[in-house]
Every structure is written in structure tokens, then in C-alpha cells.
Amino acid sequence: MNDMTASHKALGAEIAVRSAPYFPRKKKVITGRSIAVIVFLSICALFFCVPLYVVIVTSFKTMDQIREGAMFALPNVWTLEAWDHAWNSACSGTRCEGLKVGFWNSVAILIPSLILSIGLSIVTGYALALWNVKWAGPFLFILFICAFVPFQIIMFPLISMTASLKVYGSIWGVAIIHAILAMPVLTLIFRNYYKDIPQEIMSAAVMDSGSFWKIFFEIILPMSGNILIVVLILQITSVWNDYLIGVTFGGMGGQPMTVNLANLITISTGTVRYNDNMAAALLTAIPPLVIYFFVGKLFVQGITAGAIKG
């Protein structure tokens, strides 16, 4: 956790990053207590892994084997049939075109919502942190409160507004709502990061150029690499994993992958194909899991920084 400097600046992360001074450890002889601790931790780790294991093996089984009931057994025959089914022909509501529809919808939602939310909040955070703007204090306080507001209280008005803007029920509606809802938290994260830029650098830039945008693009943006990546990961995972906004604003045409998945697993008519369900769940989980396993540290930084998103 030594390199968690970026989220130092981020809201709510204060407690998460006071990294301890590094002390080189001496080689210890394994004591009885150490063994007990490791055994306990391993059992816990097992508990954390079991659902993933079950989901994975189930997704490779045939329905015949699943009906035998041995949940923890490995597949007799490893088959990709369920994966194929989940991707290409699983039903979500009345449409049976598989999760690929939702996948591409999710991708299509992700890109504009990332651009909108990060673009909006980085500029706002920059202006609030580094420029002398009126009402900065009250505005920050309101943003702080907005970050905690439950979605339900603004849900109907947002539906009405998006409907009148003719974006309700499309990927654009979902993307815009994501950007709006993420704005307070991301602004606070950026603002806290920029607050630590030395005042003299801003003074120098103001004397050298004086242009709000030129200073942003030439000086500040190049200094934001760390926080941008952290925010990017936070935003990708939270948009990808979202269900509520997708189901509310996606209508028929803009449903993200999670909505497809939820429709699939909550279906109660006909025979339930559990292997399809699990394959679909895995398909939905793979993108964020890949991010997690490759850049876990940054993911944790983002999640602690954006903790108030809950």
C-alpha cells in the first residue's frame, strides 16, 4: 500500500492510506500462532472462493449433470455449450438474443458516460480547488450532500426530464444519468487531489499564462495521471456493475448486461438452465474481474476514494 499516494487526496480515503513506515522484517521462525492464523485465513479465503468455484464449474456442466445435484463436483464433460447459449441465445424478457446485446449496450453506455462524467467533474474539481471562485465552500458542501442522496428520491424527476429530452429508454439516457450521479463524488475526488498542488505553481501559471483552459490542459492535466487512472477504474467498474440506473433508464433498447442477467436469473417459467445462468453471470463479471486482477491496487484506491458512493 506504499504507493497509494493518489487517493491520499481523495475524499473518505484519509483513513485508507496512512501507510505505515516500511520496516524490513527479519526472517521469523514459524510459530504455532502463525500457523493457526494462516489456517484461519485460509479457511476464510476458501469461503470467499466457494461461490466463484461453484459458478465456474456449473457454467461448464451439462444440465443433466447439474440435475444429479452434486454442486461441488467438477464437470464430467467440460462443455462450452452454456457459454455459447448465454452469449448468443439466452432470453432476457421476450428477446432471446443472448447477453451479447447487453454486453454491447454496456460498452456503448460506458464510453459516453466516462467522457461526460470525468470531463464534467475534472473541470469542476479544478476550478473549485485552484481558482478563486465565489461560493466554492457552500458548493462543495452541497456536492458532498448530493453524493449521499439515495437514488430513489430523484428517480421520478430524472425519468421525466430524460423523457422530455427524448433520451429516456436509450443508452444515451443511461449514460447521461450515470454522468450526473457520478459528478458529485468524482468532483470531490478531483478537488481533493488538486488541493494538494502547491499554490505557488498555480501562482506561477497565473502569471505566465493566466488562461483557465491553457493552465488546465498544459499544466494541471499532465499532473493528473494518477488520479485519472484511479477515477477511470472506479467509474468503469461502477458503471459496468450498475443495475438500477440501467433498468430504470434503459427501457427496451438500452439495457446493459446486468439487466439482461437479472432478467435471465429471475425468470420463473419453464425449466431453468442453471449452467446458462452461471455462464451469463461469469460473462458479466469478467470485465471488472480482469481489471481487478490486473490493477487491483488502483481499484482499491478508487473504491475507497469513492466509498461514499456505497
Binding site: 461461490p51 466463484l52 461453484v54 459458478v55 467498474t237 459496468w240 456493475n241 450498475d242 443495475y243 446486468t258 442477467l261 437479472a262 436469473i265 445462468n277 452461471m278 451469463a280 453471470a281 461469469l282 458479466t284 463479471a285 471488472p288 474481474l289 481489471i291 481487478y292 481499484f299 473504491i303
Partner: peptide
């Protein structure tokens, strides 16, 4: 934490 609660729920 990295995966959707819908996936968690499904599992």
C-alpha cells in the same frame, strides 16, 4: 467487491 451485485446475487 469488483463484481456486480447482480452477479453476487445470481451466485
Amino acid at each position: 467487491l469488483a463484481i456486480s451485485l447482480i452477479v453476487t446475487g445470481a451466485a
